[in-house]
Amino acid sequence: MRLAVLKERRAGETRVAATPETAKKLAALGCSVAIEAGAGAAAGYPDQLYADAGAEIAPDAEAALFGAGIVLKVRAPLGTGEGEIDELSLIHRGALLIGTLEAIANPERARAIASVGVDACSMELLPRTTRAQSMDVLSSQANLAGYRAVVEGAAAFDRAFPMLMTAAGTIPAANAFIMGAGVAGLQAIATARRLGARVSATDVRPAAKEEIKSLGASYVGYEDEESRAAQTSGGYAKAMSPEFLAKQAEVVAAHIAKQDIVVCTALVQGRRAPILVTEAMVASMKPGSIIVDIASDAGGNCALTRPGEVTVTANGVTILGHTNWPGRIANAASALYARNLLTFLTTFWDKEAQAPKLPEDDDLVRGVTITRNGAVVHPGLA
Rank of each mutant, 00 (worst) to 15 (best):
D293Y: 12
L364F: 09
S218L: 09
G12H: 08
I98V: 15
H255K: 14
L96I: 14
D224W: 03
V252C: 07
T19Y: 07
C31Q: 00
V365F: 04
T14Q: 10
R228C: 09
I35V: 14
I256H: 00
E360G: 06
L96G: 00
Y50P: 12
I370V: 05
E36C: 02
A375R: 15
E152I: 13
G12I: 11
Q231S: 11
R2E: 14
K73D: 02
V292G: 06
R271M: 11
R194K: 14
P287D: 05
G81E: 05
A4L: 13
L138N: 04
G380E: 07
A76G: 07
A239T: 12
R328T: 10
E82C: 05
W349K: 00
L358K: 05
T14E: 12
T14A: 14
L381P: 00
Y219Q: 01
T14P: 03
M135D: 05
A68E: 03
A68H: 06
D136Y: 00
T265A: 08
Y45S: 10
G81H: 02
L88G: 02
V150W: 01
D293A: 09
G30P: 03
V150Y: 01
L304H: 12
T130V: 15
R131S: 11
T129N: 03
M281E: 03
V368T: 10
N315V: 11
D47T: 08
A201Y: 04
L336C: 07
A61C: 11
G79Q: 13
A105N: 12
V310K: 12
V277F: 03
V263D: 02
G94Y: 09
R10C: 13
A149S: 14
M240G: 10
A382V: 14
G38A: 08
R366S: 02
A197E: 11
D363T: 15
R271V: 04
M163I: 05
